[in-house]
Amino acid sequence: MSLPNQADQGITFDTFMEGVWRQNPVFVMMLGMCPTLAVTVSAVNALSMGVATLFVLVSSSLLISLIRNLVPKEVRIATFIVIIATFVTLTDYLIQAVSLTLYEALGAFIQLIVVNCIILGRAEAHASKNPPLKAVINALGMGTGFTIGLFALGATREIFGAGKLFGMTLFGDQFQPWVVMVLPPGGFFVLAAWLLLFSLLRSKSATEGGHAHD
């Protein structure tokens, strides 16, 4: 009852770049929105959340890909969830041991990585059908894309909301911080602004005779 080894075509550069650009989880696929908006109050939080997700994504992809022919089709989702939950628990304790400040800043959102659609989506769509190396490279790309997306949001919100980046003050005393940026509505607005920027660029390149969809 194993899944057929269909999408097995070898590893190309696109295996990695798919997640970073063409199918970026944050800006294109709109997956894993909850941590994206909740923890991106500062660049540091956003980066650590991205790296934590990257770790869970890569290790669960590796394990799922290794056991892909052993798991019966009917219980595969449950199996994937338990594997992911195991790695998330690991990450949770790891962050708690390394930095308690960071652990408190991210709060329950580390444990909520379990229900991040990106990870289950990757497990179902890619890792369960591909050999380990390819699955890991693809997961690395996805995780990197997610981290880049989070960092873009986190940096924007920190710069406008607090006038800082990585805790360093950027502007002079006369700068009035936009407090709304670090509050919940700011998360929605900043993500909407990034999406608008991308669709503006896309429509520009379309009117200039370029290819809108590449």
Binding site: M30, P184, P185, G186, G187, F188, F189, L191, A192, L195, L196, S199, L200, S203
Partner: peptide
Amino acid sequence: LVQGTALTLILAGLLS
């Protein structure tokens, strides 16, 4: 230009 997800997100921001 605004149609789609961006509009939904702006709405969500206003609601928030």
